[in-house]
Nucleic acid binder design. Structure first.
Length: 490
RNA sequence: CGGGGUGUGGCGCAGUUGGCAGCGCGCGUCGUUCGGGACGACGAGGUCGGAAGUUCGAGUCUUCUCACCCCGACCA
């Protein structure tokens, strides 16, 4: 176990907190509920951004930027929307400070804003008020916009990455001529999210529809991807909303169709946030530290020289430079850590804590044998390989690791996904370690709330894929068209 | 907003009936070490969260206050 890292078994939640701090991903800031994302953590986020951004661009979306501030009146235009967010909004009321008599500064009460500004908790309202001017004809559609931004939701309890008062995300906001097209967009993005989660984060997810209870405020239908964390709790990792005409009606966004008829446009919005960082951390990491999927690791390979004297180091370093070039030529990001201020053992532990997928150690023995010691983070196996062709060897290994950690996560999820056919069985599963539980539900809010109150488990989603076998609700015995996915959630 | 807890060098903590602010880690210099978190010697670093009070004397007692953490209700 890594120094100072609580084990998962001992206290999972503490393990997560320790890991975020010790792996140098983020820390708490002077502002309650807000985090400082440190360079190493931010580097991972930047990789995520780059991949997602390309996926959005490849599907025809463009980036833009809308204001941080939203006039208070905008928020109340859509009734459900305002109700959903009102309780967690930060409000700007003044625009000036003045020196206070007792020293320091205070709010200048004479500088009160005529209309207060809300710090965006999400941007539907400001964006739709803008779209009104952008859209007149069916020729202006579809409008496919994304923005990378920060948003603020004044959460009561926060945790680094998983729930912070301010977080970074992307929010896509699209406008379409038809309902079908908007739904198609909503689902297309859901596929992008699940593809990203599985192929890049190596984290299996379940795509589904949210129940009315869990639906985004202002949406007609909310879709999400749900991942299972190692403690048996579910983490909603991305959402895509079909907004119907709710916002176009609230902001009066209309267009003339090709028959000259005036219609309200159809909308979608979708987002993933820095919460993905939390998902990534919890999906794969162990008691030694982070385990990062090679495709998102800022450093894929670290090389550690083993030496006693300076002369030895210079021989090793020149050999390492050849190896490094070989790796770079294979498209691998490499760090050579030749710092003399830390010892090899320390470095080994450090890079394990930080989740670097592959570590190479090169010492005099290797120079003599023309070998490299290769250690993989996921299995902790160490093996010697010939120096020649090391680029290809490592490249293949990185791919193997990517696949292996995905499979591992997938196995974990299958082991922890069970069907329950009675309420008692359901309760037993939830109480003994949790996980995903597939059960029949009668589709009513009352039953959902009862289950949630009695067991703390909620309906994560109604899965889109998989069998649609009818049955009877585990609580009321009323008919159900398919099993839905329950879990305790983050 | 309820319940619990913590504020003392950068970090983690100790500090007894009130009596010279300490320990470990980290940090700096030097030397020996270096294939799984090395060791020795010397050294730097603190108005004890803040304010008021009690006292000859407060990290310690009293009152007020601020901040943060954990557990619940709300949430991506």
């Amino acid at each position: 176990m890594a120094k100072g890292l609580t084990s998962r078994k001992e206290n999972y939640s503490q393990w997560y907190n320790d890991l975020v701090i010790k792996a140098d991903l983020a820390e708490n800031s002077a502002v309650r509920g807000c985090m400082v994302i440190k360079p190493y953590g931010y580097a991972i986020w930047e990789k995520m951004q780059a991949v997602l951004d390309k996926m959005f661009k490849d599907t025809g979306h463009s980036n833009a930027y809308f204001p941080l501030f939203i006039p208070k009146s905008f928020l109340s235009r859509e009734a459900d929307h305002v109700e959903g967010f009102a309780k967690e909004c930060a409000v700007v009321t003044h625009y000036r400070l003045k020196s206070s008599p007792g020293g320091g500064i205070e709010v200048d009460e004479t500088a009160k804003l005529e209309e207060e500004l809300i710090i965006r908790p999400t941007s539907e309202t400001i964006i739709w008020s803008t779209y009104k001017n952008w859209i007149q004809s069916y020729r202006d559609l579809p409008l496919l916009i994304n923005q990378w931004a920060n948003v603020v939701r004044w959460e009561m309890r926060t945790r680094l990455f998983l729930r912070t008062a301010e977080f970074l995300w992307q929010e896509g906001h699209t406008a379409h001529a038809t309902k079908d097209e908007a739904i198609e967009e909503t689902l297309k993005i859901l596929d992008i999210y699940s593809g990203f989660a599985e192929n890049w984060m190596a984290m299996p997810v379940i795509k589904g529809i949210k129940t009315e209870n869990e639906r985004f405020a202002g949406a007609v239908e909310t879709y999400s991807i749900e991942a299972l964390m190692q403690d048996g709790k579910a983490l909603q990792s991305g959402t895509s909303h079909f907004l119907g005409q709710n916002f176009s009606k609230a902001f009066d966004v209309t267009f003339l169709d090709n028959k000259g008829k005036l219609e309200h446009v159809w909308a979608s919005s979708w987002g993933v946030s820095t919460r993905l960082m939390g998902a990534l951390i919890m999906a794969h990491s162990d008691d030694r530290g982070l385990v990062l999927p090679p495709r998102l690791a800022p450093i894929q390979v670290v090389i550690v020289p083993i030496y006693k004297k300076a002369e030895e180091l210079s021989v090793i370093s020149s050999e390492v430079e050849i190896i490094r070039q070989d790796l770079i030529a294979s498209g691998i990001s490499v760090k050579y850590d030749d710092r003399d201020t830390y010892k090899p053992g320390w470095k080994f532990a450090e890079y394990e804590l930080k989740g670097v997928p592959v570590r190479l150690a090169v010492g005099s023995r290797d120079i003599d044998n023309r070998t490299v010691e290769v250690a993989r983070r996921d299995t902790l196996e160490k093996k010697s390989y010939p120096m020649d062709g090391i680029g290809e060897t490592v490249k293949a290994l990185l791919e193997e690791i990517q696949v292996n950690i995905f499979r591992k996560a997938q196995d974990f999820r299958s082991r922890n996904t069970v069907a329950a056919d009675s309420y008692q069985e359901f309760k037993d599963i939830i109480e003994s370690g949790g996980g995903f539980v597939l059960a029949h539900w009668d589709g009513t809010r009352e039953t959902e709330e009862r289950i949630s109150q009695e067991t703390k488990a909620t309906i994560r989603c109604i899965p889109l894929d998989g069998e649609k076998v009818p049955g009877k609700c585990i609580v009321t015995g009323k008919p159900s068209s398919q099993r839905v996915l329950f879990a305790k959630a983050y």
